[in-house]
Protein backbone atom coordinates (compact mmCIF):
# COMPACT_ATOMS: atom_id res chain seq x y z
CA UNK A 1 0.00 0.00 0.00
CA UNK A 2 2.72 2.36 0.94
CA UNK A 3 3.67 2.36 -2.74
CA UNK A 4 0.32 3.67 -3.91
CA UNK A 5 0.03 6.35 -1.26
CA UNK A 6 3.67 7.21 -1.23
CA UNK A 7 3.54 7.69 -4.98
CA UNK A 8 1.80 10.97 -4.22
CA UNK A 9 4.84 12.25 -2.39
CA UNK A 10 7.54 13.39 -4.73
CA UNK A 11 11.04 14.63 -4.22
CA UNK A 12 11.33 18.36 -3.92
CA UNK A 13 12.74 19.96 -7.05
CA UNK A 14 16.17 21.51 -6.86
CA UNK A 15 16.10 25.14 -7.79
CA UNK A 16 18.49 26.34 -10.49
CA UNK A 17 21.64 28.06 -9.28
CA UNK A 18 20.55 31.30 -10.96
CA UNK A 19 17.53 31.40 -8.65
CA UNK A 20 19.83 31.15 -5.62
CA UNK A 21 22.00 33.95 -7.00
CA UNK A 22 18.93 36.09 -7.63
CA UNK A 23 17.54 35.59 -4.13
CA UNK A 24 20.87 36.12 -2.40
CA UNK A 25 21.51 39.32 -4.36
CA UNK A 26 18.05 40.57 -3.54
CA UNK A 27 18.58 39.74 0.10
CA UNK A 28 21.86 41.67 0.18
CA UNK A 29 20.31 44.62 -1.59
CA UNK A 30 17.31 44.80 0.71
CA UNK A 31 19.38 44.53 3.88
CA UNK A 32 21.84 46.97 2.40
CA UNK A 33 22.99 48.63 5.62
CA UNK A 34 23.12 45.41 7.60
CA UNK A 35 25.16 43.83 4.79
CA UNK A 36 27.39 46.89 4.74
CA UNK A 37 28.26 46.43 8.40
CA UNK A 38 29.20 42.80 7.80
CA UNK A 39 31.14 43.82 4.72
CA UNK A 40 32.86 46.59 6.69
CA UNK A 41 34.10 44.00 9.18
CA UNK A 42 35.75 42.09 6.36
CA UNK A 43 36.99 45.30 4.78
CA UNK A 44 38.83 46.41 7.92
CA UNK A 45 40.53 43.06 8.44
CA UNK A 46 41.71 42.92 4.85
CA UNK A 47 42.75 46.58 4.80
CA UNK A 48 44.95 46.02 7.86
CA UNK A 49 46.43 42.88 6.32
CA UNK A 50 47.24 44.58 3.00
CA UNK A 51 48.58 47.69 4.73
CA UNK A 52 51.02 45.73 6.86
CA UNK A 53 52.33 43.59 4.00
CA UNK A 54 52.54 46.43 1.51
CA UNK A 55 54.11 48.67 4.14
CA UNK A 56 56.90 46.17 4.67
CA UNK A 57 57.49 45.92 0.95
CA UNK A 58 57.51 49.68 0.41
CA UNK A 59 59.95 50.13 3.29
CA UNK A 60 62.22 47.52 1.76
CA UNK A 61 62.23 49.38 -1.54
CA UNK A 62 62.84 52.71 0.19
CA UNK A 63 65.84 51.22 1.99
CA UNK A 64 67.20 50.06 -1.36
CA UNK A 65 66.75 53.47 -2.87
CA UNK A 66 68.01 55.66 -0.06
CA UNK A 67 70.16 53.51 2.14
CA UNK A 68 69.10 52.60 5.60
CA UNK A 69 70.16 55.89 7.22
CA UNK A 70 67.72 57.88 5.24
CA UNK A 71 64.80 55.71 6.15
CA UNK A 72 62.72 57.21 8.86
CA UNK A 73 61.49 54.20 10.67
CA UNK A 74 61.58 52.77 14.11
CA UNK A 75 62.08 49.26 12.91
CA UNK A 76 65.66 48.23 13.80
CA UNK A 77 66.23 45.41 11.36
CA UNK A 78 65.26 47.51 8.44
CA UNK A 79 68.90 47.76 7.30
CA UNK A 80 68.84 44.14 6.30
CA UNK A 81 66.00 44.92 3.95
CA UNK A 82 64.14 41.91 5.26
CA UNK A 83 60.88 41.73 7.10
CA UNK A 84 61.64 42.23 10.76
CA UNK A 85 60.38 40.20 13.69
CA UNK A 86 58.10 43.06 14.60
CA UNK A 87 56.64 43.09 11.13
CA UNK A 88 56.03 39.37 11.21
CA UNK A 89 54.28 39.91 14.50
CA UNK A 90 52.18 42.62 12.87
CA UNK A 91 51.34 40.41 9.91
CA UNK A 92 50.31 37.54 12.15
CA UNK A 93 48.23 39.95 14.20
CA UNK A 94 46.55 41.33 11.10
CA UNK A 95 45.74 37.82 9.93
CA UNK A 96 44.19 36.99 13.29
CA UNK A 97 42.17 40.22 13.24
CA UNK A 98 41.06 39.29 9.74
CA UNK A 99 40.02 35.73 10.59
CA UNK A 100 38.30 36.54 13.86
CA UNK A 101 36.60 39.65 12.50
CA UNK A 102 35.23 37.91 9.43
CA UNK A 103 34.19 34.76 11.29
CA UNK A 104 32.36 36.86 13.85
CA UNK A 105 30.63 38.98 11.22
CA UNK A 106 29.39 35.94 9.35
CA UNK A 107 28.40 34.09 12.50
CA UNK A 108 26.22 37.00 13.59
CA UNK A 109 24.79 37.53 10.13
CA UNK A 110 23.64 33.91 9.88
CA UNK A 111 22.60 33.38 13.49
CA UNK A 112 20.28 36.37 13.53
CA UNK A 113 18.44 34.75 10.62
CA UNK A 114 17.82 31.30 12.11
CA UNK A 115 14.09 31.96 12.28
CA UNK A 116 14.10 32.94 8.63
CA UNK A 117 15.89 29.71 7.78
CA UNK A 118 13.33 27.69 9.74
CA UNK A 119 10.52 29.51 7.97
CA UNK A 120 12.03 28.88 4.55
CA UNK A 121 12.29 25.20 5.34
CA UNK A 122 8.61 25.18 6.36
CA UNK A 123 7.79 26.59 2.96
CA UNK A 124 9.65 23.82 1.18
CA UNK A 125 13.28 24.93 0.95
CA UNK A 126 15.82 22.13 0.73
CA UNK A 127 18.74 22.19 3.17
CA UNK A 128 21.06 22.43 0.23
CA UNK A 129 19.33 25.53 -1.06
CA UNK A 130 19.50 27.27 2.32
CA UNK A 131 23.22 26.58 2.60
CA UNK A 132 23.75 27.66 -1.01
CA UNK A 133 21.95 30.91 -0.36
CA UNK A 134 24.06 31.80 2.64
CA UNK A 135 27.34 30.79 1.06
CA UNK A 136 26.55 32.93 -1.97
CA UNK A 137 25.62 35.88 0.21
CA UNK A 138 28.75 35.57 2.31
CA UNK A 139 30.87 35.03 -0.79
CA UNK A 140 29.59 38.25 -2.37
CA UNK A 141 30.09 40.13 0.87
CA UNK A 142 33.55 38.66 1.35
CA UNK A 143 34.63 39.54 -2.16
CA UNK A 144 33.21 43.06 -2.02
CA UNK A 145 34.70 43.70 1.41
CA UNK A 146 38.06 42.24 0.44
CA UNK A 147 38.41 44.14 -2.85
CA UNK A 148 37.51 47.45 -1.26
CA UNK A 149 39.58 46.59 1.82
CA UNK A 150 42.63 45.80 -0.31
CA UNK A 151 42.45 49.21 -1.96
CA UNK A 152 41.75 51.01 1.30
CA UNK A 153 44.73 49.25 2.89
CA UNK A 154 47.05 50.07 -0.01
CA UNK A 155 45.94 53.68 -0.28
CA UNK A 156 46.30 54.30 3.44
CA UNK A 157 49.81 52.84 3.58
CA UNK A 158 50.75 54.92 0.52
CA UNK A 159 49.56 58.07 2.26
CA UNK A 160 51.51 57.15 5.39
CA UNK A 161 54.67 56.56 3.39
CA UNK A 162 54.11 59.71 1.39
CA UNK A 163 54.34 61.58 4.67
CA UNK A 164 57.60 59.80 5.57
CA UNK A 165 59.42 59.60 2.26
CA UNK A 166 57.75 62.23 0.11
CA UNK A 167 57.56 61.72 -3.62
CA UNK A 168 60.19 59.00 -3.47
CA UNK A 169 57.33 56.65 -2.74
CA UNK A 170 56.01 57.18 -6.25
CA UNK A 171 59.43 56.93 -7.88
CA UNK A 172 59.91 53.49 -6.33
CA UNK A 173 56.49 52.43 -7.58
CA UNK A 174 57.67 49.98 -10.32
CA UNK A 175 59.88 48.22 -7.77
CA UNK A 176 57.16 47.25 -5.35
CA UNK A 177 53.91 47.37 -7.31
CA UNK A 178 54.02 43.76 -8.49
CA UNK A 179 54.47 42.46 -4.98
CA UNK A 180 51.81 44.76 -3.61
CA UNK A 181 49.37 43.63 -6.30
CA UNK A 182 50.15 40.04 -5.37
CA UNK A 183 49.40 40.80 -1.71
CA UNK A 184 46.15 42.46 -2.72
CA UNK A 185 45.20 39.45 -4.81
CA UNK A 186 45.97 37.09 -1.94
CA UNK A 187 43.98 39.31 0.40
CA UNK A 188 40.94 39.26 -1.90
CA UNK A 189 40.94 35.49 -2.12
CA UNK A 190 41.59 35.25 1.61
CA UNK A 191 38.68 37.59 2.40
CA UNK A 192 36.24 35.69 0.25
CA UNK A 193 37.35 32.25 1.43
CA UNK A 194 37.28 33.29 5.09
CA UNK A 195 33.82 34.80 4.70
CA UNK A 196 32.48 31.64 3.08
CA UNK A 197 34.13 29.42 5.71
CA UNK A 198 32.83 31.67 8.49
CA UNK A 199 29.28 31.43 7.15
CA UNK A 200 29.42 27.75 6.26
CA UNK A 201 29.44 26.49 9.84
CA UNK A 202 26.37 28.30 11.16
CA UNK A 203 24.52 28.06 7.82
CA UNK A 204 25.05 24.32 7.64
CA UNK A 205 24.03 23.87 11.26
CA UNK A 206 20.90 25.99 10.77
CA UNK A 207 19.92 24.11 7.62
CA UNK A 208 20.29 20.75 9.37
CA UNK A 209 18.09 21.74 12.31
CA UNK A 210 14.46 20.70 12.16
CA UNK A 211 12.48 23.87 11.33
CA UNK A 212 10.79 23.85 14.73
CA UNK A 213 14.16 24.13 16.44
CA UNK A 214 15.58 26.70 14.04
CA UNK A 215 12.57 28.91 14.71
CA UNK A 216 12.91 28.52 18.47
CA UNK A 217 16.40 29.98 18.51
CA UNK A 218 16.26 33.55 19.78
CA UNK A 219 19.18 35.86 19.22
Amino acid sequence: MAQGAKGEIRSQIELPFTEAIRISFQSLRIRFWRSMITTAGILLGIAFFVAVLSGAEITRVMVERRGSQAVITAIDDVQTGRISAQQIWLIVMSLIVCVVGIANSMLMAVTERFREIGTMKCLGALNKFVVELFLLESGFQGLAGAVIGAFVGFISIMLLNLKDYGLDVFLGFPQYILRVLMYMGIACILGMVLAVIGAAGPAYRAAQLPPAEAMRVEV
Partner: peptide, 20 residues
Protein backbone atom coordinates in the same frame (compact mmCIF):
# COMPACT_ATOMS: atom_id res chain seq x y z
CA UNK B 1 -0.08 12.28 6.63
CA UNK B 2 -2.46 11.03 3.97
CA UNK B 3 -1.39 7.54 5.07
CA UNK B 4 2.26 8.22 4.42
CA UNK B 5 4.60 7.50 7.30
CA UNK B 6 6.73 10.61 7.72
CA UNK B 7 9.61 8.56 9.11
CA UNK B 8 9.95 6.79 5.77
CA UNK B 9 10.41 9.98 3.81
CA UNK B 10 13.75 11.35 2.65
CA UNK B 11 14.64 14.97 3.51
CA UNK B 12 13.80 15.93 -0.05
CA UNK B 13 10.38 14.28 0.18
CA UNK B 14 9.75 16.00 3.50
CA UNK B 15 10.57 19.33 1.84
CA UNK B 16 8.12 18.49 -0.94
CA UNK B 17 5.46 17.64 1.62
CA UNK B 18 5.98 20.92 3.47
CA UNK B 19 5.87 22.77 0.19
CA UNK B 20 2.77 21.21 -1.37
Amino acid sequence: IDDVNLLELSPSEIAWLRCW
